[in-house]
Every structure is written in C-alpha cells, then in structure tokens.
C-alpha cells in the first residue's frame, strides 16, 4: 500500500515507513536511545530528501521524548532548573542551526553537510559503543564488576563563574557548561534531526557529574522542547516537515518501543550493545562510502530557492 507524502512529494510504502518506525522504536526501547541518529540516515537511504528527513525526524522525536519524559517525571528524575538552563542554550542552538540549514540549502551543500555530520558522529558513537561493549563482555567473562564511577572529584568545570545550585542533581556548578552543552545539542537537533541524548547524557554524567538517572530524565525533558522548537522553525524557515511521514513514523515508533522495552529485558545487554554499535558503524560506512566514491550520476537537479 503506497502513500503519497505531501511535502516530500513522493509515494512510499506505508508498511516500509511504519516498519522503519517500528524497528527504530524497538532499538530505542531496547537501548534507551532516542533513535533519531538511526532513523534519519534510514530515511535518507530510502530516498527521502535529507532536509525533509531531518526536520520530520525532529517532529517524531518530540513525540517519543514526550512519552519518555512522562515516565522519567513520575520517577522524579527531571531536574527542571538544569533542564531550563540546557534549554536556554538549546533554543539559541536550534535557531542558529535551522538558519545554517537554510543557507546551506541555498548553496546546494545541505545534503553534504548532513552526511558529513552523520559520518563524524556515527563514527565516534559507534566506535565508543563497540569498545565499551567489548570491554563489558570481557569483564563479565572475567567475573569482575564494573568499576565504580568516581564522584565528588573536582575538575576544571568547577572553577568557572556564574555558579548555581541544582538540588535534584545535587550540584553547585557554573551554568556555562550546561548552556554550551544545550547550544551544541540544539545545533545537532536542527542540522541532524536527532534529540542529542547520545551526546548530552554522557556529557552530563562524565563532565557535569550529574547522577545517571537524573541525566537521562533531564535530557529527555529538554529534548521535548528543543525538538518541538526545531520542528516549528524548520516548518517556518524551510517548509520541510512532512506531517504524513511524521505520523507514520510515530505510529511505528510507539508500537516498536513497547516491544523493544520487553525484548531489552530478556536479552543480554553487552552483546546487543555490540550489535547496535555495528549497525551504527555500518550506517556510518555507507554514508562515508557515498561521499568518497565517484557517483554514477555526477549531476543533480534541485528546485532552486530564493532569488538570484
């Protein structure tokens, strides 16, 4: 059954889209990742124009992060004050990011920029995940417990000015690092169509020393607002949000996430993480390969935007 996507102006199989939403939903349910950095490249692979993939995926993440943050909220894992500071940076980052996309689009380089960002970040995330999961596998085989995280130690971040108290995170730190982190993640959300949890959560845990549960909850909380803003900004500036595509992905994602959570509880974590890492690296390789190898068709035709 084909469905016509009104903004992408193409006809795609409904089952393919709901299926993609479902598979990425399963993966994100299993690993607790947002899924944007898996979904956007997949949409690009099936032929959705990258700018539309990015803007529409931001819309879908808004949906999945709403349900995620409600669950986190109930468990009291959201530090609203920290979330608000991150969000301030996120707002600035998304405004700048959407503007960058608009300019790159006029220059005809937006597809390249999106691909390059993905090759870079998928490469880093994939390698780190693979190393971590291989280590974890060896650790479990050796029968040793994971080393405890050092806490309470001070680093350069604690010497920065504009300090503020964050009760839920049990921290008294400068607001500069969270602002910058929010800015970076806002930029990524606008340019790559990701929530940015894969950068934000480790940064919050290892750099800001926020407790893991609070980091996950607060990150999800601010992703709701950043991706919502990115959706609106892309809709206004670039007209690239495809509501029909987003709806189908949401439908698949909601169903998939339910299965994913259950599957994740039954299966062994380390091996699964290694598999996810391999998947991420495979997508990175595919995108990188397409940039390096001489394309069959050197020319491309695009609608022209703006004036002369």
């Amino acid at each position: 059954m084909q469905i016509y996507l009104p903004i992408a102006e193409m006809s795609v199989s409904v089952f393919l889209l709901v299926g993609l939403g479902g598979i990425v939903g399963i993966l994100s349910g299993m690993f607790g990742v947002g899924g944007g950095f898996l979904m956007t490249p997949m949409l690009i692979f099936i032929g959705i124009p990258p700018v539309i993939a990015v803007a529409t995926e931001a819309n879908q993440i808004a949906a999945s992060s709403v349900s995620g943050s409600i669950a986190q909220w109930r468990r009291g894992n959201v530090d609203i004050k920290m979330g608000a500071i991150l969000l301030c940076g996120g707002v600035a980052g998304s405004i700048v990011g959407v503007q960058i996309v608009k300019i790159l689009r006029e220059m005809g380089q937006v597809d390249l920029a999106i691909s390059l960002c993905y090759v870079f970040f998928l490469g880093i995330v994939g390698v780190l995940m693979l190393i971590e999961s291989i280590r974890a596998v060896f650790r479990t085989q050796a029968g040793k417990a994971a080393p405890a995280r050092r806490s309470g130690q001070h680093n350069w971040i604690h010497r920065l000015p504009f300090k503020m108290r964050f009760n839920r995170s049990k921290l008294y730190i400068s607001i500069v690092p969270p602002l910058l982190l929010g800015l970076l993640v806002g930029l990524l959300a606008a340019i790559m169509g990701v929530g940015g949890g894969f950068i934000m959560v480790p940064a919050m845990i290892y750099l800001l020393r926020i407790p893991t549960t609070v980091a996950v909850g607060t990150s999800l909380f601010q992703i709701v607002f950043v991706t919502s803003l990115v959706t609106i900004l892309h809709a206004v500036q670039n007209q690239t949000v495809d509501a029909v595509l987003a709806l189908l992905l949401m439908a698949g994602g909601v169903i998939g996430a339910q299965f994913g959570v259950r599957l994740g509880q039954r299966l062994r974590g380390e091996q699964l993480r290694a598999l996810l890492a391999l998947l991420v690296l495979a997508m990175c390789a595919k995108l990188g390969f397409d940039l390096l190898v001489e394309p069959d068709e050197l020319f491309s035709v695009a609608d022209s935007f703006g004036g002369h």
Partner: peptide
C-alpha cells in the same frame, strides 16, 4: 503548521505514555 505538528507529536507521546 509547525505548531500543529508539535501538538500532534505531543498527543502521540501522551497516547504512548
């Protein structure tokens, strides 16, 4: 349109939750 997309996303999230 953008605001509507966000509202739909919010509702979908609530349904899921």
């Amino acid at each position: 349109y953008g605001i509507l997309c966000v509202i739909v996303a919010g509702l979908a999230g609530l349904v899921a939750a």
